[in-house]
């Protein structure tokens, strides 16, 4: 596992992530502009939901990213616990913040979408409920991380919680879905229409990739910042600052 130590050493990470940060930021700009233009202007309004359907182009990618980020966070947690890589510890903390924001975004857009659809901002729909539980899980990780004065200990505690969480999420998700079907009868899920036309799917996928590159660009930028402040007394940071 030599390469983990190599790519995870603070100094080397700072170097290679710099290049990636530039590429990812450029990609994000292009994809976001293209995706938003397509989603908000080119794509047709839905015949049932008319213009409100456009919330989907933000809501669905956020919901996807909220789950994806949790997996990234837990994977970083595994690396942090086994190999004690400092960068991985920072990634855990940073993805928790980003993931919680995606989850909140998915919840808020879901509620805004729900108002015209269901006539109420909140219904105990399986997906919204799952997303709410996911937000609780993120809040837990953030709470335990910030409760420790020592950031390294806090990151380790957060990693353990994230790993326990990632094993539990499928079970929670499944149980909530099941609870929902038994209590309300199979509701027609309005968030994914299997017969969505290509004119809607294309911008959705572009937005999906835009969110993904945005996530990694953000993660790299935040991790690099945190790393600089954490390691500010070391010689390699001093060298960078002098340049």
């Amino acid at each position: 596992m030599h390469f983990i130590h190599k790519y995870g050493s603070p100094n080397y990470f700072y170097q290679w992530s710099g290049t990636w940060l530039k590429i990812l930021s450029a990609l994000t700009l292009i994809l976001m502009a293209l995706g938003l233009y397509w989603a908000l202007i080119i794509s047709p309004p839905d015949y049932q939901q008319s213009e409100t359907v456009r919330i989907m182009y933000i809501h669905v990618p956020s919901a996807w990213m909220s789950m994806f980020t949790y997996v990234v966070m837990a994977s970083a947690g595994v690396v942090a616990m086994i190999w004690r890589i400092k960068v991985a510890e920072i990634v855990v903390a940073q993805s928790a913040i980003i993931g919680a924001s995606f989850t909140l975004l998915a919840l808020v857009t879901g509620m805004l979408w729900g108002k015209p659809m269901w006539g109420a901002y909140w219904v105990w729909d399986a997906r919204l409920t799952s997303e709410l539980v996911l937000l609780f899980l993120y809040v837990g990780v953030l709470a335990i991380y910030s409760a420790y004065e020592d950031p390294r200990t806090g990151a380790k505690a957060a990693s353990i919680l994230a790993i326990v969480g990632v094993i539990n999420i499928p079970i929670i998700h499944y149980s909530v879905e099941w609870w929902n079907t038994l209590h309300q009868g199979p509701t027609v899920t309005k968030f994914d229409s299997p017969s969505a036309p290509l004119s809607m799917l294309t911008p959705l996928f572009i937005m999906f990739f835009a969110f993904k590159t945005y996530f990694f660009a953000l993660l790299f930028a935040r991790t690099r910042n945190a790393l600089l402040s954490r390691e500010r007394h070391t010689s390699w940071v001093q060298e960078i600052l002098e340049k």
């Binding site: 539980v133 609780f136 809040v139 837990g140 335990i144 969480g165 079970i171 929670i172 499944y174 909530v176």
Partner: peptide, 14 residues
């Protein structure tokens, strides 16, 4: 409690 309650959900539901 804050950390653990969400993990109790499946138990509660089942």
């Amino acid at each position: 409690s804050l950390l653990i309650l969400p993990f109790y959900i499946p138990v509660l539901i089942f």
